[in-house]
């Protein structure tokens, strides 16, 4: 399009408006408008107004939606490479994960989906996922034996829970609260802000911070729409996205701290287990990817970064 024309991009995602990642995307919309002097604007549709994460990525491919925020776990449906984020204990620490995402490997992954008509813009921190249970505290992997743990629809998530010894039970997110309340499942796993905003802490009294997976959110733009933007517009968008990612890490850290405080106030016992036995248990799972060239090369590259 020509420079005199104003462009509006639609961004849809599944989070509520008090979520730190939503706030970061609102900041991106504001920065984009400021940088371009109103030439390039972004309208944000929160709370699954335009569909679930999986559906929004499909709309991005179709081209009726410009931008969406999606968990790297959901990206597994679209490209194998993102499975690497779903692997347990793939990162040595939070700093390690930031180093990977900010570095060459992260950039490679973002651009790896261009042949899938999706272009990654940036990563948002989504913390680490840990187990929360109704009445059985998890101190070691052995405590998971026989427990029915709700999993998301994801092959790597199912494999991960089975590797740790739990019974992976599929329950849709919408039915999870009542399923926990009535005891259909014994527990679930998620990051602290999700435990807090879903109110699952009202039912689950133990939160065991084993931090088995660190699955970031990814901001993606439709390749069809990206290619129609001028180079200048692409720059504005990328810069606004990068700036929002910096802010998001700060907001996320705050929200994580606050969520943990709130759930503890509500009577949840937070447990800090020794991670070593958990890490040991999942090693065969990481090795099982030896035959998958793409994923295994990413595993090796990530492990090589200090």
């Amino acid at each position: 399009s020509t420079h005199s024309e104003k462009t509006e991009l639609k961004l849809a995602h599944g989070l509520p408006t008090d979520h730190p990642v939503h706030k970061a995307m609102m900041f991106m919309a504001q920065r984009c408008s400021e940088l371009s002097d109103g030439q390039l604007t972004i309208e944000v549709y929160p709370a699954e107004q335009l569909g679930s994460e999986q559906q929004c990525v499909e709309l991005v491919q179709i081209g009726s939606l410009a931008i969406t925020k999606v968990s790297a776990a959901v990206m597994e449906s679209f490209t194998d490479a993102y499975k690497v984020f779903g692997l347990p204990y793939i990162f040595k620490s939070k700093e390690h994960s930031f180093k990977i995402m900010d570095g060459e490997i992260g950039k490679d992954l973002l651009l790896s989906t261009e042949d899938k008509w999706i272009r990654g813009l940036t990563y948002y921190d989504a913390g680490s996922r840990s187990f929360y249970t109704i009445d059985k505290p998890i101190h070691t992997p052995d405590d998971l034996a026989g427990l029915k743990i709700r999993v998301m629809r994801s092959i790597t998530a199912v494999e991960m829970i089975r590797a740790l010894g739990g019974s992976a039970t599929p329950i849709s997110w919408g039915e999870l609260y009542t399923a926990l309340q009535s005891g259909v499942v014994d527990g679930a796993e998620n990051n602290p802000p999700s435990l807090y905003t879903s109110r699952h802490y009202e039912v689950c009294k133990y939160y065991s911070l084993d931090e088995h997976t660190t699955i970031p959110d990814v901001l993606v733009v439709s390749k069809i729409i990206w290619d129609k933007l001028s180079e200048q517009e692409q720059e504005w968008l990328q810069q606004a996205a990068d700036e929002s990612a910096v802010l998001e890490r700060k907001l996320w850290a705050e929200s994580e701290k606050e969520s943990l405080e709130e759930v503890q106030k509500a009577g949840v016992e937070v447990i800090y287990p020794d991670k070593a036995p958990f890490i040991e248990k999942v090693q065969p799972l990481l090795e099982s990817y030896k035959d998958n060239e793409v994923i295994y090369s990413y595993i090796k590259r990530i492990q090589a970064v200090k």
Binding site: K148, R153, V158, S167, A168, T169, P170, V184
Partner: peptide
């Protein structure tokens, strides 16, 4: 499968 199997089927809901 939740009551019979140790590891319930993971694909039924999809």
């Amino acid at each position: 499968s939740r009551y019979i199997l140790n590891s319930p089927s993971s694909y039924t809901d999809e």
